[in-house]
Design a protein around this nucleic acid. Structure first.
Lengths: 308, 308
DNA sequence: TCTTTAGCATAAGAAAATCTTATTCAGCCT
DNA sequence: AGGCTGAATAAGATTTTCTTATGCTAAAGA
């Protein structure tokens, strides 16, 4: 071998190029979607590695030095080339599409807020989330994976338990001021979702109302998302489902009423076709999902936890 | 703005390029001086990001796919360009040289094993370590920094306390089998180092020998490194200095004899010229050194610690 | 002039990416 | 067979990178 290359830290280069091109740390930070501080540190580390000043610094602004300017011109070309190369590589291959079928409530309350991390980690996968109340047909291959809430007996399909769930009464903290006094409260009912599940769950709410002599003044919502929103706004007592409201409980927007939380007869399952094997991207998503769930369960509020 | 670039993970690219060029993970690993496993993971992550196979994998070897080959050719050119660009930037500037003057014992026992980390982090700094028993002259600018062991009164120089030190008897664990029985043991004496310091430290050893009626059979070593080596080999009882033997104590090669460890009247100082300001690289080294020392003191064995 | 705002630097701690170690496996060679 | 080599993978440690919080200065606006 002739001469070993000694390359500067590549991520610092990226930060420098963006900064130099835009002329400001904050713009570069936006472009790279990180904090300005991160960019500043990267640029500094590059200067330190090189032992050269790439920028002249004012209190309030930065300006390329001569050295910096000459470096920039080369780098911009280089990164453009790389982008082009990579893109042409990508364009030759079939686009990666991954279709998920998910219940609307789960999509809105749990998956939605988390899935952007997956998108960011795998930007070239075109992820489509289809919401539906009923289990879709896997036979035509229009869906790769589904997440379902139910008893788990899916015939002719591969299913894998994702999470169990606790259910029980929950409401806005303001409604809890007088301990145990639910006399004037409104019951928020879920009129949506699959029939069997809905009836079973609402039973709990009736039982609870009866045992605590709660007024039977009640609202019904056709959509679980609307129901949860109403509860968030303090409009009444809902049947909380631990998976859907955990984030609200953590941030204090909702409080689980202590008594009567029990394990739901239903759980979340990851479902896929038993005949067609999962695509590589499908496996990727599954892996990500399991990791995400494990993290979620770790920071789940204790009161919403099954007593393990 | 027209179109945002979407660049693959750059470090993964580096790993891929090296692997593809050398044709093997292990060679690439060597070139990049990381483990083969690390390279393997990086390459995989790139393939995953792209959604393409870059290599065909056998049990025992890997081989570029067509796609991989075409990517490689572009990347190699790119990295070569970058190397060239960077080098031409560097070549225009004065070479960075940093000269340290250090005591031979400290250089061998403490600084030597650690300084490679600094070299790796700042490969473009040409670090020269000069060992000498006496404090060098800073006036001619031939040395940027010195590390000294002494009472700290350096006239006309900037000095900064680095570490204090404990001294006391130490020896190989095998010599300690019979508790407190040092009757037949040999004293290992340090005949090297600056006069004043040596005499003062050896006093401790004499006191210890007297109080424990140790035989006065003794060896003298002209070099502290030889002395410590002799102690490591179980040839006798030495006057241990916490900074120099901490690593040996941690790994069990040497054991501090419990009694009589006291704070040395001497400490380690970082010394530099009072008139000439430190170069940027000098400051860099100082910062690294302080961090390294702080880490060192944290994992220092308790028995060698000053009772703080 | 005094206040407010925008942009950057820096420290400290949190989070994430990366690396190492240990283990397994498959082919190849003896 | 048994030993070797190169690679994949899991788990955990380490290092890098990022965020948040804070301080500072210059310029803009009242």
């Amino acid at each position: 071998m002739l001469k070993k290359r000694r390359l500067p830290p590549l991520n610092a280069l990226k930060a420098f190029e963006a900064t130099a091109r835009t002329g400001s740390l904050s713009l570069a930070a936006e472009e790279l979607s990180v904090s300005a501080s991160a960019v500043s540190q990267q640029v500094r580390s590059l200067e330190q590695w090189l032992g050269l000043s790439l920028f002249d610094r004012g209190a309030n602004f930065i300006e390329l030095t001569k050295t910096g300017t000459s470096y920039l011109s080369g780098l911009t070309v280089m990164f453009d080339q790389l982008d082009e190369m990579t893109e042409s590589l990508q364009s030759k291959k079939a686009p990666r599409r991954l279709r998920l079928s998910v219940l609307p409530s789960f999509a809105a309350e749990w998956l939605g807020p988390r899935v952007k991390k997956f998108r960011k980690a795998h930007p070239s996968i075109q992820l489509e989330i289809l919401t539906s109340d009923r289990l879709v047909d896997f036979s035509d291959g229009s869906v790769d994976l589904a997440i379902r809430y139910g008893p788990g007996n899916y015939k002719g399909l591969t299913s894998e338990l994702l999470m169990e769930e606790m259910v029980g009464p929950a409401c806005h903290p303001d409604l809890l001021t007088e301990e145990g006094a639910f006399s004037g409260i409104t019951l928020l009912r879920d009129a949506g979702g699959p029939e069997g599940i809905r009836l079973c769950l609402e039973e709990w709410l009736d039982d609870f109302a009866q045992e605590n002599s709660v007024d039977h003044d009640s609202y019904s919502f056709s959509d679980t998302h609307l129901l949860i929103n109403a509860a968030r706004n303090g409009e009444g007592l809902m049947l909380g489902r631990s998976v859907l409201i955990a984030d609200d409980v953590l941030s204090g927007r909702l409080v689980p009423v202590l008594s009567k939380w029990t394990k739901s007869p239903f759980s979340y399952y990851l479902v896929s076709s038993a005949v067609r094997e999962l695509t590589p991207d499908g496996r990727l998503f599954r892996k990500w999902l399991l990791a995400e769930i494990s993290e979620f369960e770790n920071k789940m509020p204790d009161r919403l936890r099954g007593q393990e």
